[in-house]
Simulated assay, not measured.
Amino acid sequence: MRTLTGDLTVSYAVRGKTTVATVGGTVDDEGRRLLTEGLEAALGLRGRGPIVVDVSAVLVLEPATMLCIAAVAREAAKAGRDVSVRI
C-alpha cells in the first residue's frame, strides 16, 4: 500500500489479467494530483489488461476526482486498456 497524502491511500494488486487500484480516504486538491500520479503508476504495473479503480472507500467523491480518473482512463485507452470504476 502506498500512502499519498493525509489519509489518502492507493493500493495496487494484479489479479489475473486485471490491475486493481483501491483508493481510500479523502481526496482533496493536493490529493487529486497525487491520485493521478498513483493511477499512472498502476498503469505501469502491467502493460496490458483491464484496470479497475475501486473508490468505494473514498469518504467524499467529488466530480473533480472523477475527472482525474477519466484522464488516466484516456491514457490507458491509448494503450488499448479498459478502465472501470467501482463505486
Results as ranks from 00 to 15, higher is better:
Thr65Phe: 00
Val14Ile: 15
Val58Ala: 06
Gly38Pro: 01
Glu40Met: 11
Gly24His: 01
Ala13Arg: 15
Thr22Pro: 00
Leu43His: 03
Arg32Leu: 04
Tyr12Gln: 08
Ser11Met: 06
Thr22Ser: 15
Leu67Val: 14
Ser11Thr: 12
Ala41Asn: 08
Thr26Gln: 07
Ala57Gln: 14
Leu45His: 09
Ala13Thr: 11
Thr22Glu: 13
Thr19Ala: 10
Ala41Tyr: 10
Glu62Met: 07
Ala64His: 08
Ala42Ser: 12
Glu40Cys: 13
Glu40Tyr: 06
Val55Asn: 09
Gly38Gln: 03
Asp28Phe: 12
Asp28Met: 10
Glu37Pro: 00
Gly47Tyr: 00
Gly44Ala: 15
Ala21Trp: 01
Tyr12Asp: 12
Leu39Tyr: 04
Asp54Tyr: 03
Arg32Asn: 07
Gly24Tyr: 00
Gly25Phe: 01
Gly25Cys: 02
Leu67Thr: 14
Pro50Ser: 10
Leu8Gly: 03
Ala13Val: 13
Glu40Lys: 14
Glu37Ala: 14
Ala57Lys: 14
Gly16Cys: 11
Leu8His: 07
Glu62Phe: 05
Val27Ala: 00
Gly38Ile: 05
Pro63Cys: 09
Asp54Leu: 05
Ala64Glu: 14
Glu40Gln: 14
Ala41Gln: 13
Val10Trp: 00
Arg32His: 09
Val55Leu: 14
Leu67Tyr: 08
Val14Tyr: 01
Thr26Pro: 00
Leu35Ile: 08
Val27Met: 03
Val10Gly: 01
Val27Phe: 05
Gly49Arg: 13
Ala64Gly: 05
Thr9His: 08
Leu35Ser: 11
Gly16Gln: 08
Glu40Trp: 03
Arg46Trp: 01
Pro50Thr: 05
Pro63Val: 10
Val55Trp: 09
Arg15Ile: 10
Arg15Gly: 09
Leu34Glu: 14
Gly25Ser: 00
Arg46Pro: 13
Thr19Ser: 12
Thr19Asp: 03
Gly44Tyr: 01
Val55Asp: 13
Met66Pro: 00
Tyr12Leu: 13
Pro63Gly: 14
Gly16Asp: 06
Arg46Gly: 06
Pro63Glu: 13
Met66Val: 11
Arg33Tyr: 02
Gly16Phe: 09
Thr18Tyr: 00
Met66Asn: 05
Val60Trp: 04
Leu35Tyr: 05
Tyr12Arg: 11
Thr19Gly: 04
Val53Ser: 02
Arg33Pro: 00
Gly25Asn: 06
Thr19Trp: 00
Gly16Asn: 05
Pro50Arg: 14
Thr36Phe: 02
Leu34Lys: 15
Glu37Ser: 10
Gly25Trp: 01
Asp54Phe: 02
Arg46Asn: 12
Ala21Val: 04
Arg33Trp: 02
Gly49His: 12
Thr18Ala: 07
Leu43Asp: 07
Leu34Ala: 15
Leu59Tyr: 01
Val27Lys: 06
Val10Ser: 02
Leu34Gly: 08
Gly38Cys: 08
Arg32Tyr: 08
Asp28His: 13
Ser56Met: 11
Ala41His: 12
Leu59Thr: 15
Thr18Asn: 00
Val53Ile: 15
Pro63Ser: 13
Leu45Gln: 12
Val23Gln: 05
Asp7Gln: 06
Gly25Thr: 03
Asp28Glu: 06
Val14Arg: 03
Leu39Val: 02
Leu34Tyr: 04
Ser56Val: 10
Val53Gln: 05
Gly44Arg: 15
Val55Cys: 08
Gly47Asp: 12
